[in-house]
Design a protein around this nucleic acid. Structure first.
Ligand code: SF4
Ligand code: SF4
Lengths: 155, 155
DNA sequence: TTCATATAGTACCATTTTAGTTCTATTTAA
DNA sequence: TTAAATAGAACTAAAATGGTACTATATGAA
């Protein structure tokens, strides 16, 4: 599986929709365009606003807009905002703790693989997400495995 | 998060342990070496046997051994066996279905990203995963700070 | 002023997923 | 015959997830 949560996925949809608008767009409007539920879109936009990826304007005629140009928002940042830092294993996150680590043969390798994936995702922008052309060269995870550096908590 | 399940993670530990043994190893023995619970290890080995990654021998003096050399077992296969094919979004999996897909701007991009990750994981072998514990050094903060992929504001 | 529109923040809940255990049946070496 | 071991299924508690609901607050316009 290695799946991201549905809400994170939907968050990218919401952001991609905002990227298509030049001015403020309400949650209701975004919901209609994306075919998502309005309460769900609201919840996502609140979280994204809190993370600083979108800017909100309250009151009548209020709404949301991207805080930065779409080219400057990465997939990794979106995931960070909506479900926390990429961490394929517990010990790949700086907050994570695993009792087995002192005895674990595979921890370092997974941490490096995690870094490779994280880095690849940081090089994908919101523009790339909504423009499905050639993108994302295959991450060379072997190169990361060869590195002597322990990259736990690289976020 | 983008995390794999704990059981999949543990599965790599179990396989790494088997790779260190030349002959049959019982679930109990693997559990002792990995510090995992014996019933959990048994469950994992049953699944791995079903997937064809390990071979089992029943009866007294029975146990498990890798079905192939460790170099020929990939991380992607291990994930496939224990939690199904890598699928970061619902629509990235052949079996998956998402009602939004006909209207979704980001589906194609995520599918390609999924393919890139999957492919990268298929190039990592069980041998690559087996990193000596001694390499678990203090986090190298200098390397982190010097990294061109320095990511802002994460915990 | 008053009101409709809109976000902010929190709490809640049903469902699903996950991690782990338990139990019975079967196989095999000694 | 028996102890050691896997096979397979069912079960359960806990956690995560997806979605909803509710109150409070802000703002533009009639
Ligand atoms: S230490 Fe080993 S078992 Fe624990 S989270 Fe890391 S990789 Fe998984
Ligand atoms: S179609 Fe869009 S919303 Fe549905 S799973 Fe794929 S990326 Fe996610």
């Amino acid at each position: 599986m290695l799946k991201m949560s549905k809400l994170t996925d939907y968050g990218t949809l919401v952001l991609a929709q905002l990227a298509k608008e030049s001015k403020l767009s309400s949650a209701h409007k975004v919901a209609r365009a994306t075919h998502l539920g309005q309460p769900t879109v609201s919840k996502l936009l609140k979280t994204l606003a809190h993370a600083g990826l979108v800017i909100s304007e309250r009151g009548a005629q209020g709404g949301y807009t991207l805080a930065r140009p779409a080219i400057e928002i990465s997939a990794a940042e979106i995931i960070d905002a909506l479900e926390g830092p990429v961490a394929i294993t517990e010990c790949s996150s700086i907050k994570g703790h695993c009792d087995l680590q002192s005895n674990c043969q595979v921890a370092t390798a997974w941490q490096k693989i995690n870094f490779g994936i994280r880095r690849a995702l940081s090089e994908v922008s919101l523009v790339d997400l909504q423009t499905p052309v050639e993108l994302l060269a295959t991450p060379n995870l072997k190169a990361y495995l060869a590195s002597p550096t322990n990259l736990k908590g690289q976020q």
